[in-house]
């Protein structure tokens, strides 16, 4: 048995024939916090969906706990997903349920816990993200940052083995940012889980990640521990880490020459 809980092997995937990933290899060791970084539209969210088995790879495979995800039956995939938690980029809270019911949702659906225990657990999770006082609110009554914190509480409701965070820091104020940052790390260590963080925020990500992958143009362009990457002289990494506009990472989506398009 390997100690890698998730392995991505020579993975290629594209929407409508246009390849987005061109042979990606990554490993996610047990108990570690691993970050995936890359520009907007580089296919990070898509990568998480591939791990969760919501879409099938064009080539290559994703293995979770030794099982090839896209070869699983429907029940098999559901079995794997029970060990995962995912924070969606836009929260994806159930708008017809209150904050409390949102966090309670996975517990009620997937376990036979008594309602009194569910109540305690939900309040515990909400307390961790600082929103115990808001448990009666409906999702529409929350600010963007609050909604993402509720979604975070829901993602970890069942103490999963693999926790995927899609942009956990987006839209948070500095104080919550620090709290959530610490929470991700401490949850990971307390549960012995593996965390996969997709993010743009170099500072926070480097603070908590054990290992970082950079993706660009459908490939892993750099990888290493945060310390290594900070020292890296690779122009791409240097540009990203220091937030420079000019460099090998294009800010623009591939497009015809601007001048030509404006004039023509």
């Amino acid at each position: 048995m390997t100690s890698n809980i998730v392995e991505i092997d020579n993975l290629s995937f594209g929407y409508n024939g246009r390849l987005l990933h061109k042979g990606i290899n990554m490993v996610f060791p047990k108990g570690k916090v691993v970050a995936i970084m890359g520009g907007s539209g580089s296919g990070k969210t898509t990568l998480l969906r591939l791990i969760g088995g919501q879409i099938k790879p064009t080539k290559g495979e994703v293995r979770v706990d030794g099982h090839v995800v896209h070869e699983q039956t429907r029940d098999g995939i559901y079995q794997l997903r029970r060990t995962m938690g995912m924070l969606f980029q836009h929260g994806a809270l159930f708008t017809d349920l209150s904050v409390f019911d949102n966090v309670a949702f996975p517990m009620r659906e997937l376990t036979d816990l008594p309602e009194s225990m569910i109540r305690d657990l939900v309040l515990l999770k909400l307390n961790a993200v600082g929103l115990r006082g808001a448990h009666k609110f409906m999702p529409t009554e929350l600010s963007g940052g609050m909604a993402r914190r509720v979604a975070l509480a829901r993602a970890v409701a069942l103490d999963p083995n693999i926790i995927m965070y899609d942009e956990p820091f987006a839209g948070l104020d500095p104080i919550s940012m620090g709290v959530i940052c610490g929470l991700i790390r401490s949850l990971n260590d307390a549960l012995g889980a593996t965390s996969i963080i997709v993010s743009h925020d170099v500072k926070e990500t480097f603070l908590i990640a054990d290992y970082v992958y950079f993706v660009a143009n459908g490939e892993v362009t750099a990888e290493g521990t945060p310390e290594d990457l900070m020292q890296s002289t690779l122009p791409f990494v240097h540009q990203f880490v220091h937030g420079e506009k000019d460099g090998p990472v294009p800010f623009h989506y591939a497009a015809p020459d601007y001048r030509a398009q404006l004039l023509g």
Binding site: M84, A92, T95
Partner: peptide, 19 residues
């Protein structure tokens, strides 16, 4: 309602929770 649940990824979220 269902269209909106799909648009806001609620259905995806449900699937990812194995529901």
């Amino acid at each position: 309602e269902i269209g909106l649940m799909k648009t806001t990824e609620q259905l995806s979220a449900m699937e990812m929770m194995a529901v």
